[in-house]
Every structure is written in C-alpha cells, then in structure tokens.
C-alpha cells in the first residue's frame, strides 16, 4: 500500500516539477527545443541554430567548418574576393542556377513522359497539360527554360571574368580546363533539354545541331546514328536525349563541379588581388 502512495506522490511531484518548467515565453520554448540531445546531434558546435552561439572568432570559424554546405568554403577568405567587382558572383550564380534547374527539373519530371510517335504523343501532350492544369506547372516550366538560358549566359560571363583576371594562371591552369569541360557540359545540358517539349521548334533545332555533328570526320554517320538512336530524329531520339538530359549529363556535371570547387580551394582560394 505504501508503495502505491509513494508512487503516486512521486508522480505528483514530477508533475509539479514539469509544470514549473513549462515554457512560458518564446525564449523558453527556444531554449527547450535547442537544449536536447537530438537538436545538438544535428547542429554541430558553431551552428547559429545551436544554443550559445556567440559572435566570436571561434564560433565564426566553426560555423563554416561544421556545416556541410558552408564547408565548401575555407574558414577565411581573402577580403578583396568579397568585392562584388572581383567575381561578380558569376561562378556562384552559375552554380545556383544549376541547383535551381535541378529543383525545377525534378518538378517537371513528375508530369512528363518522354514518349512520341503517331498515336502516343505523350511528351507534347504532357507539356500542354503542364501549362494548362498543373498547379504552378506553367511558372515552373518558364523558370526552367529561362534559368537554362541564363545559366549558359552566366557560365560564359564567368569564363570571361576568369580570363580577364588572369585567374587561370598557375596553379589554376587545370581548373581552367575543368571549366572548359563545364562550359561544354552546360551547353550539352541545355541542348539535350531543348528537344524534350517535342514541338516544331525543338525537333528542328536539334535536327540542325545533329546534322552539323554528322560531319565529324570519319565517324560522322556513326556519331549521328548514336545521337539520334536511328538515321533520323524520332521517338528513340527523344528517349535517348531525355535520359542524357535528366541523368547522364547532370551526373557528369556534378562530378566536374566537385572537382572544380575542390581545386579552387587546393589552388589557394580565389585568385588575386590583381
């Protein structure tokens, strides 16, 4: 019997305690959310979301070191590199557009089937439906399209800025080569995507492009056959370019981007000052 009453009084006491502890303001809620094992296991020391972040040199350093994304950066960067007129953010914007295109592209994939041919023009119909009846479908398609054109443009400008700063000079020669590969990949990404709406604009632009490649010395016809999945543009081409566009080229691009970013740091960070 006494055991039972002990237990009950324990429970009561615990309840009182909890009541006393119950958060009463936003600050208390914040503290109790931040002050537990799970939160602390996610946000490593130096995270601004962790309890007790202070604006000290130590925590500023940890903020960059202990975050998977910020960790692309060194803890400290050259002051001149921050000036907008040094990089114009062009490399960063190219990368950001790549991310934006990945996100909008995944959205589009939910509503698109790469099928063409008499009686089953799904690709084209899906594009129509996307605009007509998918919530935000029209907007997201526009973003994907304009983002893609913009990325070709920013990558191009990034290359020009790197050139005019002589930022390709030793030890950065190889990263310049990686950059040229990235430029090629960016063009390929854009060009393979161009076919997917399967309208007149798409197939004739691609016809013109692949005809040029058909003039490759010696292997011309083979190159064209592989690219088109046949002697002329058709449903096979669409499937082929779809896979290239959503998987193969992005995959290769991500690898080269990783090398590109890694080399920036290994080559001693951003070049300059001039």
């Amino acid at each position: 019997m006494s055991r039972m009453s002990d237990f009950l009084s324990d429970v009561k006491k615990r309840r009182e305690e909890l009541k006393a502890k119950r958060p009463s303001s936003f600050g208390d809620v914040k503290t109790s959310v931040q002050d537990n094992v799970i939160w602390k296991s996610i946000f490593r020391p130096g995270s601004i979301y962790r309890k007790g972040y202070r604006d000290t040199s130590r925590d500023r350093a940890l903020a960059a070191m202990n975050n998977v994304l910020y960790h692309l950066h060194p803890v400290k960067v050259k002051r001149h590199g921050l000036k907008l007129t040094y990089t114009y953010c062009l490399g960063g914007l190219s990368f950001f557009l790549f991310i934006l295109l990945t996100i909008t592209g995944i959205f589009l994939m939910f509503f698109y089937r790469p099928t063409a041919g008499a009686g089953s023009e799904l690709a084209y119909l899906d594009m129509r439906n996307l605009s007509a009846s998918v919530t935000f479908g029209h907007l997201v398609r526009n973003m994907h399209r304009w983002g893609a054109h913009l990325m070709v443009f920013t990558v191009f400008l990034h290359m020009a800025r790197v050139f005019y700063h002589g930022a390709y000079k030793p030890p950065r020669e190889f990263n310049w080569v990686v950059g040229v590969i990235l430029l090629t990949l960016t063009l390929l990404l854009s060009f393979t995507g161009y076919l997917l709406p399967w309208d007149q604009l798409a197939i004739w632009a691609v016809t013109v492009g692949t005809e040029m490649m058909g003039f490759t010395p010696v292997f011309g016809k083979q190159v064209q056959f592989v690219l088109l999945g046949g002697v002329e543009i058709g449903p096979n081409t669409l499937l082929r370019w779809y896979v290239l566009h959503v998987l193969f080229v992005p995959f290769v691009t991500v690898i080269f981007l990783a090398v590109h970013f890694w080399r920036i740091r290994k080559d001693g960070g951003i070049s300059g000052p001039l």
Binding site: Y124, S131, Q200, A205
Partner: peptide, 22 residues
C-alpha cells in the same frame, strides 16, 4: 516559354534555327 505546334518531321519550318548559343 515557347511551345509551338507538335513536332512534324515532314514539315520543315523556314528558317530552321539551332538554339541561340549555336
């Protein structure tokens, strides 16, 4: 973003142009 008529391999538009960067 433009979306023209359904692709038709037998109807060549005039002019046929590649994307702008080409």
């Amino acid at each position: 973003a433009p979306l023209g008529a359904l692709a038709n391999p037998n109807l060549t538009p005039n002019p046929s142009k590649a994307p702008w960067y080409f």
